[in-house]
């Protein structure tokens, strides 16, 4: 079950300057009743996007057509809370390819990488620069280069390196799936079991 390949991306970004955006906000529990992976984008940030009568809340950023793009820029400690992969599915299904933050919760980060959604962790300083640049010009673009592990603000040319596990980087760049890798290790796993028995 290959994931989509990711090499580089140039896109404007959508700012969500809120800290501790937890998975219950990304996709509220009542939308977790599906048995397939499809369609979660519709309910991304449901309770921030819609009021209880299902009317759009106009001042929420996803409802503001000034901001577009495939990059979501969140505040510190993005994706905290539950292990629900539905959070990563919802963000990806909505159309994002990258989430930028100054700090990610662990499980969210893994889940994203397993689904071709790239979490890019930047410094607090760079995060503020991104927010200021978008505020000055919502069409301003970010460039994410996975091979060189850089994120660049194209308006100013300012750039920062980001970390990613080299194995995960290879997987993303080639669209590999961890499970295929492990299925090929069957003998090794069985040998391990015997050694423990």
């Amino acid at each position: 079950m290959a994931i989509d390949k990711f090499i580089t991306l140039e896109s404007p970004a959508i700012p969500l300057p809120i800290e501790n955006v937890d998975t219950d906000q990304i996709i509220p529990a009542r939308f977790l009743k599906a048995t397939t992976r499809d369609g979660f984008g519709e309910n991304l940030f449901r309770d921030w996007r819609y009021d209880k009568n299902n009317n759009k809340i106009s001042n929420f950023v996803l409802n503001n057509s000034t901001y577009t793009g495939k990059i979501l820029v969140g505040g510190r400690n993005f994706g905290s809370g539950s292990s629900r992969e539905h959070a990563a599915w919802a963000i990806y299904d909505y159309g994002f390819k990258v989430v930028v933050s100054s700090f990610f919760a662990d499980i969210f980060k893994n889940n994203s990488l397993n689904n071709g959604l790239l979490p890019v962790q930047v410094s607090e300083g760079f995060l503020s620069k991104i927010y200021s640049a978008i505020e000055a010009n919502p069409a301003t673009k970010l460039k994410i280069d996975l091979e060189n592990q850089t994120i660049t603000l194209l308006s100013s040319g300012e750039s920062e390196k980001f970390d990613i596990n080299p194995y995960k980087r290879t997987c993303l760049m080639n669209g590999y799936d961890d499970i295929d890798y492990l299925l090929n290790m069957k003998d090794k796993i069985e040998a391990f079991e015997k050694s423990k028995a």
């Binding site: 539950s82 292990s83 629900r84 992969e85 539905h86 990563a88 499980i107 893994n110 889940n111 397993n114 689904n115 961890d178 499970i179 890798y181 492990l182 299925l183 290790m185 069957k186 796993i189």
Partner: peptide, 17 residues
Amino acid sequence: GIGTSEVEMVLATQCIM
């Protein structure tokens, strides 16, 4: 705790990365 892709991984191989 793990995500659903990892649940699949453990179901398939009894291992996790």
